[in-house]
Each structure stands twice: as C-alpha cells, then as structure tokens.
Design a protein around this nucleic acid. Sequence first.
DNA 1: ATCTTTGCAAAACCTTTGCACTGCG
DNA 2: CGCAGTGCAAAGGTTTTGCAAAGAT
Lengths: 132, 132
Amino acid sequence: MERQTRQKQAVMQAIETSGRSLNAAEIWSLAQLEVPSLNLSTVYRQIKTLHDEAQVVRVDLPGQPPRYEAPCHAPRTRGHEHHHHHFHCTGCEQVFPIHGCPGGIERLAPRGFQVQSHDLTLHGHCAACVGA
Amino acid sequence: MERQTRQKQAVMQAIETSGRSLNAAEIWSLAQLEVPSLNLSTVYRQIKTLHDEAQVVRVDLPGQPPRYEAPCHAPRTRGHEHHHHHFHCTGCEQVFPIHGCPGGIERLAPRGFQVQSHDLTLHGHCAACVGA
DNA sequence: ATCTTTGCAAAACCTTTGCACTGCG
DNA sequence: CGCAGTGCAAAGGTTTTGCAAAGAT
C-alpha cells in the first residue's frame, strides 16, 4: 500500500505549482525548499512512481534531459492529456507549454508512412529573456 | 594539418551511405565493417571533428541520443543546410528525413516570446514497418 | 510491528578525456 | 621524422539500484 511522505508531497508540489516542465535537478531544487534533506535518488524514484501513476507527464525535448510536468486536463477529452507542445527558452533554459498546433502534419510524412504522433518544439527567448 | 586515415574514411562513409540519421553506436557498427579494430572513442572524436567542419549534421530527437547525418544540400540555399524535419519509426527505430514544414509556427508562441527556430518530429511506422 | 520509503554509496550507462603509441605526410 | 590521429583505460555527468535505517500506517 502506498504511503504519504513529506518527500513525495514536496516532489508533487514542485511539479504542480511550477506551471512549466522541470527536469530532475529543477524538481530537486524546488522540493528541497520544502524538505532540505531530500535526496536526488528519492526525486528520481518519486518521478518514476508518479509517472507510472500518470500523475506526471514526461516531456522529452530534442537534445535535452527529460522534463516532467503536471497533466493538463484543460479541454478534458475523455481523460486524455490535452495535446500541446513546448517552447524552450535558450536564454534561461526554462520550458513553457504552448497550446496551439499547426494542422496538416500527417501530410508531411513520406508516402506509405503511418503517422501516430508528433512533437513540436519552439526555441527562442521567453518574455523575460527578450526584455533582458 | 588534417590527415586522412582509414578510421576517418570509415566513419564518414558509414554516415554518407546510410541515407539516414545514425547514432554513435550505429556509426560504430557500420564503420567496423570497414575497420574492425575501430574504437568507439575514435568514432566520437571523428563525429565531433566532422560536425565542427559541417561535414555532418547533428539530429536531436526527443528522448533519444543524438544522431548524425550527411548534410542535405538539395535546394541549396547559399550553403545552408536545407531546412527539414524527421520521421521516427517506432518499429525499426530508424529515422528518416521529411521535407515539408507546416507554416505559421511562430504564431503559436505566447505573446512576448521570440521564436528563433523549431523542431518537428513525426512518430509512426515507416513503409517497411507498416507492411510488416 | 510491518513493510514502504528514504538516504547513502556504488553501479550502470553514455560520452569525453589523458596518455603513450601508431602511422600519415 | 614530427605531429595528428588512434586505442585503451580512466574519468565525467546523469540516472538507477542495493541495502540498511527511518518512518508511515
């Protein structure tokens, strides 16, 4: 049976309250504000558990370590995660969700290929880094 | 001054003749057919050299180790690499180039964000794996 | 008291680096 | 020959795992 611990809560809360996608180290930093003794291994283990329970979604961006974010149920579609993409700021390295999606992507595949899904990542400067 | 070696030729040839994007291990396997004693470190070093010389292009797909491919000069645009994306086959794990690109991607960014570039990856089954 | 979860340290995995040797020019 | 390039082994960075101790129920 699953137990409630300060560590687990700290990890979950870090992911939920950030509003963006965090990698393991970022989650660790944030969760340590809550539980200073928190160990990185524990963060990885909690991430794995939460991911298996579909409490967090893994976000893979090209050339980057995996990030994790809280499931976004906005236009709730039968329990499915809302389809969205990500903006990667090359200034502060933070990753933000973006909600649109260009159409007609299936048409780009070579003839005979079958598209199951797609990932789109935008790179650039976030509002804060454009100003700076 | 730069020297010609069997190892360098084997690495370059593996990348050029494959017609797709290869990771370090794949390059190693292929190049070893040519030079069986080839060391993985040498492969990494040659990749780095070739990449610095713009002889190979690095391809990062979400959640995957970096791959490398020969530059595609098709619609040669003043020496620039032709802008393209990739199709990742979830069956055979191979990666293929795709040449279209959906428009209006900049419009997806949040207000105040500045888009510099983008990556698009399609996932699915390639023609061979659809048939199988 | 039981049994999951934790912290620590070691291992695993991929990539890079130090160093002496090979071999191209 | 001289020095770029190679092989090997060791080191780095990140994630995973083994194990004894801690702590939730």
